[in-house]
Amino acid sequence: MSPAPTAPRAEKGDDPSLVVGVDVGGTHVKAGLVTATGDVLGLTRTDTSRSSEGLVDVVVGVVDGLLTAARGRQVVAVGVGAAGLVDHARGVVVLAPHLPWRDEPLRDRLEGRLRLPVVVDNDANAAARAEHRFGAGRGEPDLLLVTLGTGIGGAHLVDGRVQRGRHGLAGEYGHMTVVPDGRACPCGRRGCWEQYASGSVLGRAAEDLVRQGRPGTTMLRELCGGDAARLRGEHVTRAGLAGDPLAADLLAEVGRWLGHGLANLTSALDPGVVVVGGGVVAAGDLLLGPARRALAERLPGTGHRPVPPVRPALLGNTAGLVGAADLAREAGG
């Protein structure tokens, strides 16, 4: 992949050092050199490896490449965000459904090979940190990031610190029950929020309508080339933005469920800002408008209490690596 198209801004403050940020996902390893102000230099994307050893090699290779690219600028640490359950304190990737790592002592292995301090965290935690420091929730110490994808993930910050829970499992927002005995969820339970408000739900709802040959599905059918099984949340977003009324209805329905779940999360956490990430957020107010209305309607004491703003995530798919780098910088790299 080509380097980041954006030229680095002049850095505020006087910390010229860089931190390598790495985002290890199911298909690619994304990485870049991250400045103290959150700019990314030399963004790279590399295919992942199927073996545990191989994936460590990929990460080491990517970091080495960036160290060379830094051309003498001081690189002080490496931050890695991984899609999975991470024991942050020990730097171990415990379990990752889309990665070959199991109980992988990633921090120690990387530190041994890279001779730099390494911090390892869950990718959603890293993304929340990035939105808090440089994105849609900049400067807000109590932040909730909710990411709509296949399911619903995310992370929250309390008093400026990412909260991981007792076992590193906090932020499984998608599996809050919103409908007793509701739709079945792959987690084995029923009525989970992500069966009502995720990106995949949006795609599936569109797929159903197209299969049933409902009137008004012309645009959706065109977008998937007539193959309903190919419909994804992003197609619905695109159709909605192009003015398709049926797609707008689907987005509004998912938006309302999004708002109901956000009300529960807001009751528990009282965030100063809610940031919503994931591809479908490109639908903007078609999705977030109904979500905001449902949130305001549902929050107890509305009218007597502030309702947090609900904003689309700003940092897109570099949030993970930027946040991981920033966590590493904070850890004193």
Binding site: D142, A268, G272, V273, P300, P306
Partner: peptide, 14 residues
């Protein structure tokens, strides 16, 4: 919480 309303769990919609 950001506004002192944290952990008000009684009105979670179940």
């Amino acid at each position: 919480g950001a506004h002192g309303f944290g952990a008000e769990v009684g009105h979670l919609r179940v």
